[in-house]
Protein backbone atom coordinates (compact mmCIF):
# COMPACT_ATOMS: atom_id res chain seq x y z
CA UNK A 1 0.00 0.00 0.00
CA UNK A 2 1.25 3.43 -0.94
CA UNK A 3 1.35 6.20 1.64
CA UNK A 4 0.02 9.39 0.12
CA UNK A 5 -1.63 12.64 1.18
CA UNK A 6 -5.37 13.25 1.06
CA UNK A 7 -4.64 15.81 -1.67
CA UNK A 8 -2.95 13.13 -3.79
CA UNK A 9 -5.67 10.60 -3.03
CA UNK A 10 -8.35 12.98 -4.29
CA UNK A 11 -6.28 13.77 -7.34
CA UNK A 12 -5.91 10.06 -8.11
CA UNK A 13 -9.62 9.48 -7.66
CA UNK A 14 -10.53 12.19 -10.16
CA UNK A 15 -7.84 11.12 -12.59
CA UNK A 16 -8.94 7.49 -12.51
CA UNK A 17 -12.61 8.33 -12.88
CA UNK A 18 -11.90 10.72 -15.75
CA UNK A 19 -9.95 7.99 -17.50
CA UNK A 20 -12.72 5.53 -16.88
CA UNK A 21 -15.64 7.66 -18.08
CA UNK A 22 -15.36 10.46 -20.58
CA UNK A 23 -18.59 11.99 -19.33
CA UNK A 24 -16.77 13.06 -16.18
CA UNK A 25 -15.43 16.60 -16.29
CA UNK A 26 -14.07 19.01 -13.69
CA UNK A 27 -15.15 22.63 -13.47
CA UNK A 28 -14.40 25.32 -10.94
CA UNK A 29 -12.40 28.40 -10.16
CA UNK A 30 -8.66 27.97 -10.78
CA UNK A 31 -8.93 24.21 -11.29
CA UNK A 32 -7.15 24.10 -14.64
CA UNK A 33 -4.27 26.45 -15.44
CA UNK A 34 -3.58 27.30 -11.79
CA UNK A 35 -3.81 23.58 -10.92
CA UNK A 36 -6.34 24.16 -8.15
CA UNK A 37 -6.35 26.69 -5.33
CA UNK A 38 -5.30 23.78 -3.08
CA UNK A 39 -3.59 21.87 -5.91
CA UNK A 40 -6.03 19.00 -5.75
CA UNK A 41 -6.45 19.09 -9.53
CA UNK A 42 -2.72 19.17 -10.24
CA UNK A 43 -1.86 17.78 -13.66
CA UNK A 44 -5.43 17.12 -14.74
CA UNK A 45 -5.46 19.86 -17.36
CA UNK A 46 -2.32 18.41 -18.90
CA UNK A 47 -3.81 14.95 -19.10
CA UNK A 48 -7.40 15.70 -20.05
CA UNK A 49 -7.25 19.06 -21.80
CA UNK A 50 -9.41 22.15 -21.73
CA UNK A 51 -12.54 20.39 -22.73
CA UNK A 52 -12.69 18.39 -19.51
CA UNK A 53 -10.84 20.55 -17.00
CA UNK A 54 -12.46 23.94 -17.07
CA UNK A 55 -11.58 27.17 -15.32
CA UNK A 56 -14.79 28.97 -14.54
CA UNK A 57 -15.41 32.62 -13.81
CA UNK A 58 -16.28 33.46 -10.20
CA UNK A 59 -19.90 32.59 -10.70
CA UNK A 60 -20.88 29.93 -8.16
CA UNK A 61 -24.60 29.97 -8.75
CA UNK A 62 -23.99 29.90 -12.47
CA UNK A 63 -21.55 27.02 -12.69
CA UNK A 64 -23.33 24.96 -10.05
CA UNK A 65 -26.52 25.27 -12.09
CA UNK A 66 -24.66 24.59 -15.31
CA UNK A 67 -23.38 21.38 -13.76
CA UNK A 68 -26.87 20.30 -12.73
CA UNK A 69 -28.23 20.95 -16.21
CA UNK A 70 -25.36 19.02 -17.79
CA UNK A 71 -25.95 16.13 -15.38
CA UNK A 72 -29.63 15.97 -16.33
CA UNK A 73 -28.70 15.08 -19.89
CA UNK A 74 -25.95 12.58 -19.34
CA UNK A 75 -22.73 14.15 -18.13
CA UNK A 76 -21.10 13.53 -14.73
CA UNK A 77 -19.81 16.88 -13.59
CA UNK A 78 -17.39 17.33 -10.72
CA UNK A 79 -17.91 20.90 -9.59
CA UNK A 80 -15.18 22.26 -7.35
CA UNK A 81 -15.93 25.06 -4.95
CA UNK A 82 -12.72 26.87 -4.16
CA UNK A 83 -14.01 26.46 -0.63
CA UNK A 84 -17.45 25.45 0.57
CA UNK A 85 -17.90 28.89 2.06
CA UNK A 86 -18.63 30.02 -1.49
CA UNK A 87 -21.09 27.22 -2.12
CA UNK A 88 -23.54 29.34 -0.17
CA UNK A 89 -24.06 31.35 -3.34
CA UNK A 90 -24.93 28.13 -5.14
CA UNK A 91 -27.30 26.65 -2.58
CA UNK A 92 -30.35 27.46 -4.69
CA UNK A 93 -29.06 25.22 -7.45
CA UNK A 94 -27.95 22.51 -5.03
CA UNK A 95 -31.07 22.42 -2.90
CA UNK A 96 -33.83 23.56 -5.22
CA UNK A 97 -32.52 22.03 -8.44
CA UNK A 98 -30.13 19.13 -7.81
CA UNK A 99 -31.77 17.65 -4.72
CA UNK A 100 -35.32 17.75 -6.04
CA UNK A 101 -35.01 17.12 -9.76
CA UNK A 102 -35.43 13.35 -9.71
CA UNK A 103 -38.35 13.58 -7.34
CA UNK A 104 -40.37 16.33 -8.96
CA UNK A 105 -39.83 14.86 -12.41
CA UNK A 106 -41.41 11.64 -11.19
CA UNK A 107 -38.13 9.75 -11.52
CA UNK A 108 -37.22 10.94 -15.01
CA UNK A 109 -34.21 13.18 -14.52
CA UNK A 110 -31.43 12.00 -12.26
CA UNK A 111 -28.59 14.37 -11.40
CA UNK A 112 -25.26 12.55 -11.11
CA UNK A 113 -23.07 15.39 -9.92
CA UNK A 114 -20.37 15.88 -7.29
CA UNK A 115 -19.91 19.24 -5.59
CA UNK A 116 -16.56 19.08 -3.89
CA UNK A 117 -13.95 21.25 -2.27
CA UNK A 118 -12.45 22.18 1.06
CA UNK A 119 -14.68 22.95 4.00
CA UNK A 120 -14.70 23.14 7.76
CA UNK A 121 -12.33 25.20 9.82
CA UNK A 122 -9.18 26.63 8.28
CA UNK A 123 -6.22 28.42 9.84
CA UNK A 124 -6.82 32.00 10.94
CA UNK A 125 -9.06 33.15 8.12
CA UNK A 126 -11.85 34.38 10.40
CA UNK A 127 -15.58 33.98 10.16
CA UNK A 128 -16.44 33.88 6.47
CA UNK A 129 -13.72 31.45 5.43
CA UNK A 130 -13.79 29.00 8.29
CA UNK A 131 -17.03 27.17 8.92
CA UNK A 132 -18.65 23.77 8.62
CA UNK A 133 -21.75 23.60 6.43
CA UNK A 134 -22.56 19.89 6.35
CA UNK A 135 -25.70 20.18 8.43
CA UNK A 136 -27.17 22.57 5.86
CA UNK A 137 -26.78 20.14 3.02
CA UNK A 138 -27.50 17.01 5.03
CA UNK A 139 -30.87 18.41 5.95
CA UNK A 140 -32.24 17.77 2.47
CA UNK A 141 -33.44 14.46 1.13
CA UNK A 142 -32.10 14.04 -2.39
CA UNK A 143 -28.47 14.90 -1.70
CA UNK A 144 -25.74 12.76 -0.22
CA UNK A 145 -23.07 14.27 1.99
CA UNK A 146 -19.60 12.78 2.33
CA UNK A 147 -16.74 13.86 4.64
CA UNK A 148 -13.59 11.75 4.44
CA UNK A 149 -10.96 11.81 7.17
CA UNK A 150 -8.19 9.65 5.72
CA UNK A 151 -6.43 9.34 2.38
CA UNK A 152 -7.95 5.92 1.70
CA UNK A 153 -11.44 7.16 2.51
CA UNK A 154 -10.90 10.26 0.41
CA UNK A 155 -9.96 8.21 -2.63
CA UNK A 156 -12.46 5.40 -2.26
CA UNK A 157 -15.36 7.66 -1.42
CA UNK A 158 -14.67 10.21 -4.14
CA UNK A 159 -14.58 7.47 -6.76
CA UNK A 160 -17.92 6.18 -5.51
CA UNK A 161 -19.34 9.70 -5.39
CA UNK A 162 -18.42 10.29 -9.03
CA UNK A 163 -20.05 7.00 -10.04
CA UNK A 164 -23.14 7.66 -7.96
CA UNK A 165 -26.28 8.71 -9.79
CA UNK A 166 -27.31 11.23 -7.13
CA UNK A 167 -25.96 14.65 -6.24
CA UNK A 168 -23.12 14.29 -3.73
CA UNK A 169 -21.70 17.04 -1.52
CA UNK A 170 -18.12 16.01 -0.90
CA UNK A 171 -16.47 18.09 1.82
CA UNK A 172 -12.70 17.85 2.15
CA UNK A 173 -11.27 19.22 5.39
CA UNK A 174 -9.24 22.27 4.49
CA UNK A 175 -6.55 21.62 7.15
CA UNK A 176 -6.15 17.97 6.22
CA UNK A 177 -5.04 18.00 2.57
CA UNK A 178 -1.46 17.27 3.64
CA UNK A 179 -2.33 14.46 6.01
CA UNK A 180 -0.92 11.13 4.91
CA UNK A 181 -2.22 7.61 5.00
CA UNK A 182 -2.06 4.23 3.35
CA UNK A 183 -4.18 3.76 0.27
CA UNK A 184 -4.80 0.32 -1.27
CA UNK A 185 -3.12 -0.20 -4.62
CA UNK A 186 -5.98 -2.11 -6.26
CA UNK A 187 -6.91 -0.60 -9.57
CA UNK A 188 -10.55 -0.24 -8.75
CA UNK A 189 -10.56 0.59 -5.06
CA UNK A 190 -13.83 2.18 -3.98
CA UNK A 191 -15.70 2.60 -0.70
CA UNK A 192 -19.49 2.55 -0.77
CA UNK A 193 -21.36 5.66 0.34
CA UNK A 194 -23.35 5.21 3.51
CA UNK A 195 -21.04 2.83 5.33
CA UNK A 196 -19.40 3.98 8.58
CA UNK A 197 -15.92 2.90 9.58
CA UNK A 198 -14.82 1.93 13.05
CA UNK A 199 -11.51 3.72 13.18
CA UNK A 200 -10.59 2.22 16.52
CA UNK A 201 -12.26 -0.49 18.54
CA UNK A 202 -13.00 -0.10 22.23
CA UNK A 203 -15.36 -1.16 25.00
CA UNK A 204 -15.96 1.69 27.45
CA UNK A 205 -17.13 4.69 25.42
CA UNK A 206 -17.89 5.60 21.81
CA UNK A 207 -16.67 8.74 20.11
CA UNK A 208 -18.56 9.51 16.91
CA UNK A 209 -16.22 11.72 14.91
CA UNK A 210 -16.07 12.91 11.33
CA UNK A 211 -13.57 14.79 9.24
CA UNK A 212 -11.09 16.80 11.31
CA UNK A 213 -12.46 15.31 14.50
CA UNK A 214 -11.27 11.81 13.57
CA UNK A 215 -7.53 12.33 14.18
CA UNK A 216 -8.37 14.29 17.33
CA UNK A 217 -10.60 11.48 18.57
CA UNK A 218 -7.89 8.93 17.87
CA UNK A 219 -5.38 10.96 19.89
CA UNK A 220 -7.87 11.36 22.71
CA UNK A 221 -8.50 7.61 22.65
CA UNK A 222 -4.78 6.97 23.04
CA UNK A 223 -4.61 9.25 26.07
CA UNK A 224 -7.71 7.70 27.54
CA UNK A 225 -6.28 4.25 27.11
CA UNK A 226 -3.44 5.28 29.39
CA UNK A 227 -6.10 6.32 31.88
CA UNK A 228 -7.69 2.90 31.61
CA UNK A 229 -10.62 3.87 29.39
CA UNK A 230 -11.07 1.95 26.15
CA UNK A 231 -12.65 4.14 23.43
CA UNK A 232 -14.27 3.12 20.20
CA UNK A 233 -14.02 5.72 17.43
CA UNK A 234 -16.75 5.55 14.80
CA UNK A 235 -16.40 7.66 11.67
CA UNK A 236 -19.69 7.80 9.74
CA UNK A 237 -17.77 9.04 6.65
CA UNK A 238 -21.08 9.68 4.94
CA UNK A 239 -23.41 12.05 6.78
CA UNK A 240 -26.29 11.28 4.47
CA UNK A 241 -27.13 8.47 4.10
CA UNK A 242 -26.07 7.97 7.71
CA UNK A 243 -24.98 4.52 8.80
CA UNK A 244 -26.78 4.78 12.11
CA UNK A 245 -26.65 1.00 12.55
CA UNK A 246 -22.91 0.99 13.13
CA UNK A 247 -23.21 3.86 15.60
CA UNK A 248 -26.05 2.16 17.48
CA UNK A 249 -24.16 -1.13 17.63
CA UNK A 250 -21.18 0.66 19.14
CA UNK A 251 -23.35 2.45 21.69
CA UNK A 252 -24.98 -0.84 22.66
CA UNK A 253 -21.52 -2.16 23.36
CA UNK A 254 -20.04 0.82 25.23
CA UNK A 255 -23.20 2.45 26.65
CA UNK A 256 -21.58 5.87 26.56
CA UNK A 257 -21.18 8.26 23.66
CA UNK A 258 -19.55 11.54 22.75
CA UNK A 259 -20.32 13.11 19.39
CA UNK A 260 -17.56 15.38 18.17
CA UNK A 261 -17.89 17.95 15.40
CA UNK A 262 -16.37 21.17 14.16
CA UNK A 263 -19.71 22.68 13.28
CA UNK A 264 -21.91 24.78 15.51
CA UNK A 265 -24.06 22.64 17.79
CA UNK A 266 -27.44 24.20 17.02
CA UNK A 267 -29.40 22.05 14.55
CA UNK A 268 -26.18 20.25 13.77
CA UNK A 269 -25.43 16.74 12.59
CA UNK A 270 -24.47 15.87 16.17
CA UNK A 271 -27.95 16.83 17.32
CA UNK A 272 -29.42 14.49 14.72
CA UNK A 273 -27.19 11.58 15.69
CA UNK A 274 -27.95 12.21 19.34
CA UNK A 275 -31.68 12.15 18.68
CA UNK A 276 -31.43 8.91 16.74
CA UNK A 277 -29.40 7.27 19.52
CA UNK A 278 -32.04 8.37 22.00
CA UNK A 279 -34.80 6.93 19.83
CA UNK A 280 -33.09 3.62 19.17
CA UNK A 281 -30.79 2.90 22.06
CA UNK A 282 -32.14 4.85 25.02
CA UNK A 283 -32.14 1.82 27.27
CA UNK A 284 -28.50 1.13 26.53
CA UNK A 285 -27.25 4.53 27.62
CA UNK A 286 -25.53 4.76 30.99
CA UNK A 287 -25.10 8.52 30.63
CA UNK A 288 -26.69 11.27 28.54
CA UNK A 289 -25.25 11.66 25.06
CA UNK A 290 -22.58 14.33 25.08
CA UNK A 291 -22.01 16.66 22.13
CA UNK A 292 -18.65 18.30 21.71
CA UNK A 293 -19.13 20.89 18.98
CA UNK A 294 -17.52 24.02 17.66
CA UNK A 295 -18.73 26.96 19.72
CA UNK A 296 -21.97 28.76 19.00
CA UNK A 297 -20.22 31.86 17.67
CA UNK A 298 -18.64 32.76 14.32
CA UNK A 299 -15.00 31.77 13.92
CA UNK A 300 -12.64 34.45 15.28
CA UNK A 301 -9.31 35.40 13.73
CA UNK A 302 -7.03 35.58 16.79
CA UNK A 303 -5.06 32.38 17.21
CA UNK A 304 -5.92 31.91 20.85
CA UNK A 305 -9.63 32.47 20.26
CA UNK A 306 -9.66 30.22 17.23
CA UNK A 307 -8.25 27.40 19.33
CA UNK A 308 -10.95 27.95 21.91
CA UNK A 309 -13.63 27.73 19.23
CA UNK A 310 -12.93 24.11 18.26
CA UNK A 311 -12.91 20.79 20.11
CA UNK A 312 -9.39 19.61 20.88
CA UNK A 313 -7.80 16.52 22.42
CA UNK A 314 -8.02 17.83 25.98
CA UNK A 315 -11.69 18.68 25.70
CA UNK A 316 -12.42 15.37 24.05
CA UNK A 317 -10.69 13.49 26.85
CA UNK A 318 -12.69 15.53 29.35
CA UNK A 319 -15.94 14.78 27.52
CA UNK A 320 -15.35 11.05 27.57
CA UNK A 321 -14.46 11.21 31.26
CA UNK A 322 -17.67 13.18 31.83
CA UNK A 323 -19.91 10.53 30.24
CA UNK A 324 -17.94 7.93 32.19
CA UNK A 325 -18.71 9.80 35.45
CA UNK A 326 -15.03 9.92 36.29
CA UNK A 327 -14.58 13.53 37.32
Amino acid sequence: MAVITIREALNQAMREEMRRDENVFLMGEEVAAYQGAYKVSKGLLEEFGEKRVIDSPITELGFAGLGVGAAMVGLRPVIEFMTFNFSILATDQIINSAAKMLYMSGGQYKVPIVFRGPGGSAYQVSSQHSQALESWFAHFPGVKVVMPATAADAKGLLKSAIRDDDPVIFIEQERMYGSKGEVPDEADFTIPLGVADVKREGTDATIVARSLMVPIALKAAEELEQQGISCEVVDPRTIRPLDIETIINSVKKTNRVVIAEESHPFCGVGAEISAQIMERAFDYLDAPVKRLSGVDAPMPYARNLEKLALPDVARMVAAVREVSYLD
Binding site: A64, G65, L66, G69, A71, M72, S97, M101
Partner: peptide
Protein backbone atom coordinates in the same frame (compact mmCIF):
# COMPACT_ATOMS: atom_id res chain seq x y z
CA UNK B 1 -36.58 19.43 -18.97
CA UNK B 2 -39.12 21.02 -16.81
CA UNK B 3 -40.90 23.76 -15.35
CA UNK B 4 -38.90 25.32 -12.55
CA UNK B 5 -40.29 27.28 -9.64
CA UNK B 6 -37.47 29.52 -8.53
CA UNK B 7 -37.48 32.67 -10.64
CA UNK B 8 -34.39 32.44 -12.87
CA UNK B 9 -33.36 29.01 -11.57
CA UNK B 10 -33.77 27.32 -14.93
CA UNK B 11 -31.38 29.70 -16.70
CA UNK B 12 -28.13 28.13 -15.44
CA UNK B 13 -29.74 24.71 -15.94
CA UNK B 14 -30.49 25.40 -19.59
CA UNK B 15 -26.96 26.69 -19.97
CA UNK B 16 -25.69 23.38 -18.63
CA UNK B 17 -27.89 21.40 -20.99
CA UNK B 18 -26.38 23.34 -23.88
CA UNK B 19 -22.92 22.76 -22.42
CA UNK B 20 -23.61 19.02 -22.47
Amino acid sequence: LGGHGIVGGQIPLGTGVAFA
